[in-house]
Write a protein that binds this DNA or RNA. Structure first.
Length: 552
RNA sequence: GCCCCCGUAGCUCAGUGGACAGAGCACCGGACUUCUAAUCCGAUGGUCGCAGGUUCGAAUCCUGCCGGGGGUGCCA
């Protein structure tokens, strides 16, 4: 990548200048290559001279000129020069830029790939909402965030697995079972009440009706919800969750069942034994605690309740033990909503108690989404009647707009989603702007097929118009962006990039006529550019899981 | 009380310690005999919550305060 090459060249140039006695010999810090905000400052810049100024006891501008003079000439580099107050600016050669059009088309759907991950095994676990009800609109943010992050890591050369943890054990599952049994009895006209902490949603009534249709009165005499009934209920809910996620364009590699941890001699038992051996479990008040305070935590946390039942925390420790020690992921990325933030540090402490370097567990927290319909605030509790489901969002604003919307904000920011606004303004939604650019290109290429049958022999050296070069420059940023997003675990740059890229194309389209049989050589070169732009735009959209329409 | 996130244009939000702080929407003025006007060009709009500090340089880092959201020993 040109950026990494530049960093190395600057490093070498600085060292050479010191060796030659042109600069005092000091330690050269890691060279940071940035993208200047203003075009007149070139394509790349480094602030190295200013960072060297103090140690070298020299004027940063002089240092910049000295180092710039020693940056070797290169086919890709048109100019390197010092600029006040002490930057070195680099400008890419236009001939080199034009040649990248062929390189991008040759890379095709792989354009944007980088080798940042080098095959490191990483698991991304996201959503993992309780299967006690359908996915709410709020889950959509985690779904979009997780799925796109996984795609980015994939493009960056990591070996990625996408996993959903199905919580089919524990307290909430019990409550789900008791609710289901009550609704089931009601199907037979019995006067059963759902538990006070149960799930009042209408979907439980429908579920009970479905199970009655499937199984008849088989469970009618049961006092406690039979496992078979509960598991059937969970299965139906999981299937519905899977469908909802698929409707949002989210697909998993693996669905992990919490219950599988509790098989005799399974991970739960072994994990508990391991913690016991490590001496980090203490008994008090009738419960078993992880002595997290010993590990630097504010407080201890219950692992096994005084009732003898394990907490969610216990499940999660066993589950992470499985991720690291059974399945050998090098890195594990968990994506949780802000309401799980309190769970982060104790989870890391637990992993560390298992003998795993806690740096291998990265827990990303996304801030919660609030939803409005105009002036009406929408509550998102599964227990309340007035809930908005992720399915509702997809139906109202469409999969593409929903994903784009969820993605465009950084995970650290709370976001407000006005459903009425998203619906009403759907035609002005940025996603359509980006897709329109793609459809326009597809239209041009389709027209070209009739008038200019082949443009393989087009000469990209003819691409010299400022709008053409600006478009190429923007396309070439995609691999850098993939690298940045993979390093920072920040997918939200992608929608902004896609918008910039679309703008660059629309600007080119306005200024430069593509199809013109009077200027066949230029037409062919521009068709090559269109093809490369389409490749780039399609890749950006595909990373976001947003469709790239042929026409609109 | 303590912990985490946020506070940037009227609104929703970008902004790897750098060079005159950006986009979309909204609002105002222009451009379709031309490959898709779901487009383009232009104008308006900012004490980057407040106060200190670090730095050659702070929207960005540190401290305090104010405001919003989330969490806080046997829910997940």
């Amino acid at each position: 990548m040109i950026r990494d090459d530049l960093a190395r060249m600057v490093q070498d140039a600085a060292q050479a200048a010191m060796d030659a006695g042109e600069l005092p010999a000091v330690v050269v810090p890691d060279v940071v290559i940035e993208r200047p905000a203003r075009p007149e400052h070139g394509d790349y810049a480094t602030n190295l001279p200013m960072r060297l100024a103090r140690a070298a006891r020299a004027n940063p501008l002089d240092i910049a000129r000295t180092i710039a003079a020693r940056v070797p000439a290169d086919a890709s580099l048109a100019a390197a020069g010092g600029a006040p107050p002490g930057f070195i600016n680099f400008r890419l050669s236009e001939a080199w830029l034009a040649r990248q059009v062929d390189a991008i088309s040759a890379a095709g759907a792989a354009f944007g790939d980088v080798d940042e991950g080098r095959g490191v095994k990483v698991q991304v676990e996201f959503v993992s909402a309780n299967p006690t009800g359908p996915l709410t609109a709020g889950n959509g943010r985690g779904a979009a965030y997780g799925s796109v992050l996984a795609s980015i890591l994939d493009a960056a050369g990591f070996d990625v697995q996408r996993e959903y943890l199905v919580n089919d054990a524990g307290t909430q599952t019990d409550v789900f079972g008791r609710t289901l049994l009550a609704r089931y009895r009601q199907q037979f006209g019995e006067d059963a009440e759902i538990p006070p902490d149960g799930y009042p949603g209408e979907y439980m009534v429908e579920l009970a009706a479905q199970i009655k249709a499937e199984a008849g009165d088989r469970y009618l005499r049961a006092e406690e919800p039979p496992d078979e009934l509960v598991l059937r209920g969970i299965d139906v809910m999981v299937e519905r969750i899977r469908e909802d996620l698929e409707a949002l364009g989210v697909v998993y590699d693996s669905w992990f069942r919490e219950r599988s941890l509790y098989a005799p001699g399974g991970l739960y038992e072994r994990t508990l034994a391991r913690l016991r051996e490590a001496g980090v479990l203490v008994e008090k008040e009738g419960a078993l605690w992880l002595a997290s305070t010993e590990l630097g935590e504010d407080k201890d946390n219950v692992v096994v309740r005084s009732t003898g039942k394990p907490t969610y925390f216990a499940s999660d420790i066993a589950y992470h033990n499985d991720k690291f020690q059974q399945r050998n992921f090098d890195r594990v990325i968990d994506i949780w909503g802000a309401d799980h933030q309190g769970h982060v540090s104790r989870m890391k402490a637990a992993v560390s108690a298992l003998g795993v370097d806690p740096a291998r567990l990265e827990i990303l927290i996304y801030q919660l989404v609030s939803f409005r319909r105009g002036d009406e605030v929408v509550r998102l509790s599964k227990r309340a009647g007035n809930i908005v489901l992720i399915r509702d969002i997809v139906e109202e604003v469409g999969r593409d707009a929903a994903r784009f919307f969820f993605l465009a904000r950084s995970a650290d920011s709370q976001m407000e989603f006005d459903l009425e606004l998203a619906k009403r303004q759907s035609a002005e939604n940025p996603v359509y702007y980006v897709q329109y650019a793609h459809a326009r290109i597809a239209g041009i290429l389709a027209n070209a097929a009739e008038r200019i049958p082949t443009y393989d022999d087009g000469d990209v050296a003819l691409l010299t118009h400022p709008m053409e070069l600006a478009l190429i420059r923007k396309m070439l940023q995609l691999p850098e962006l993939v690298q940045l997003m993979a390093r920072q675990l920040e997918p939200h740059h992608l929608p902004h990039y896609a918008q910039d890229l679309a703008t660059a194309f629309h600007a080119f389209y306005t200024e430069c006529r593509v199809l013109n049989t009077d200027e066949l050589p230029l037409s062919k070169a521009r068709l090559k550019l269109c093809n490369a732009a389409r490749t780039t735009l399609a890749r950006a959209l595909s990373l976001m899981g947003v469709s790239a329409p042929e026409r609109m």
